[in-house]
């Protein structure tokens, strides 16, 4: 989807399809969180518990693909950290620039590439892929907006993409 509304301010148009807020994971990927998640959902998949099976099938220990978004969550506290850092800042920037203060996730899809391995250092980039014309929705007047978070590993290999379809809107703007 590459829709770009004709009435977007130049500053917003300039943000489209370019990487923003490029950042690395705060720590190398580690097995402890994998064990915790497998314990939480009682996942006995030997890929995560048996290093010999992992070595044979995937060339070494990997993390469950569905954990991809986990690796970019900030520490709850860190020395010198001030205020909340929001996970999808580009979304908030675009809402502010378009004067549309409310937003909901209409749908979310994740696509998984190269498995994330123990010890990997991942990098994410945020993209805005499309913004629709203004339209009236049940919640108010607004635009549909597609954002992606793309993840690559330290070798530049694509590990996955999270795609969010947001409705950003102003209440009662009909």
């Amino acid at each position: 989807m590459t829709e770009m509304a004709s009435d977007l301010p130049a500053a917003v148009r300039d943000l489209m399809n370019k990487p923003h807020y490029v950042e690395q994971t705060e720590f190398p990927i580690e097995i402890g969180y994998v064990y915790s998640m497998c314990a939480a959902v009682q996942d006995g998949n030997p890929l995560y518990w048996d290093p010999a099976v992992a070595r044979e099938l995937t060339g070494g220990q990997i993390t469950p693909p569905a954990m991809l978004s986990v690796w970019f969550k900030r520490h709850h506290w860190a020395p010198g950290a001030i205020g909340d850092r929001r996970p999808m800042q580009l979304y908030f920037d675009i809402k502010d620039m378009l004067g549309l203060p409310e937003g909901i996730v209409a749908s979310n899809e994740a696509t998984f590439g190269e498995p994330v391995r123990i010890g990997d250092v991942l990098t994410i980039s945020q993209y805005c892929r499309s913004i629709s014309e203004l339209r009236d929705a049940r919640l108010g007047r607004g635009r549909y907006c597609v954002m992606e978070i793309e993840t690559v590993n330290q070798r530049g290999e694509w590990c996955g993409t999270d795609t969010y379809n947001f409705l950003i809107y102003i209440k009662g703007g009909r």
């Binding site: 939480a40 959902v41 996942d43 693909p65 569905a66 954990m67 749908s107 979310n108 994740a110 696509t111």
Partner: peptide, 29 residues
């Protein structure tokens, strides 16, 4: 939460497929 929901779905399917079952895409509501 959402990631735990995703992990439940993943576990549910790979319990059935075995470890060679590889997740490619997931969309949920």
């Amino acid at each position: 939460n959402t990631p735990t929901n995703a992990a439940w779905f993943q576990r549910f399917v790979t319990d059935w497929t075995g470890p060679k079952g590889r997740l490619g895409k997931m969309k949920f509501k």
